[in-house]
């Protein structure tokens, strides 16, 4: 039983790590701030969720579980707020998305090459 829980928790931790890795690659590869924020968002949604779930399985019913739950709630509340603040600040200070479709329907093909 314990080993099954261990296996599940390791799988969750690995999946969480993968999500964070994907987010990191996305931040490096994507063309502009907004798409990068989009990629980075996985590092504060799916990533911590999976990692904390894995840790919670390791912790069992204890005070640590409660602390992990509190951390999760804090992340769930603060991460979108920070993302909003960042996006808003970028827009206000004049950053525009890199890929713009000027004519309706015709998407900018240069944007894909750029990415």
């Amino acid at each position: 039983m314990a080993s099954v829980i261990d296996m599940i928790s390791f799988a969750l931790l690995a999946a969480g790590g993968f999500c964070v890795f994907v987010g990191g690659v996305g931040v490096l590869r994507l063309p502009d701030l907004y798409t990068r924020m989009h990629a980075a968002s996985i590092t504060d949604t799916a990533g911590p969720l999976l990692v904390l779930a894995g840790l919670a399985l390791q912790a069992g019913w204890s005070l640590a579980l409660f602390k992990l739950a509190v951390i999760l709630v804090f992340l769930a509340v603060t991460a979108p707020t920070a993302a909003y603040a960042l996006g808003n600040a970028a827009l206000v200070s004049g950053y525009r998305p890199a890929v713009v479709s000027d004519e309706s329907g015709a998407t900018d093909s240069e944007g894909e090459g750029h990415a």
């Binding site: 509340v77 603060t78 979108p80 707020t81 909003y84 603040a85 808003n88």
Partner: peptide, 8 residues
């Protein structure tokens, strides 16, 4: 800024 303010 409503969202940061409420959450903060």
């Amino acid at each position: 800024h409503l969202i940061p303010r409420i959450v903060g």
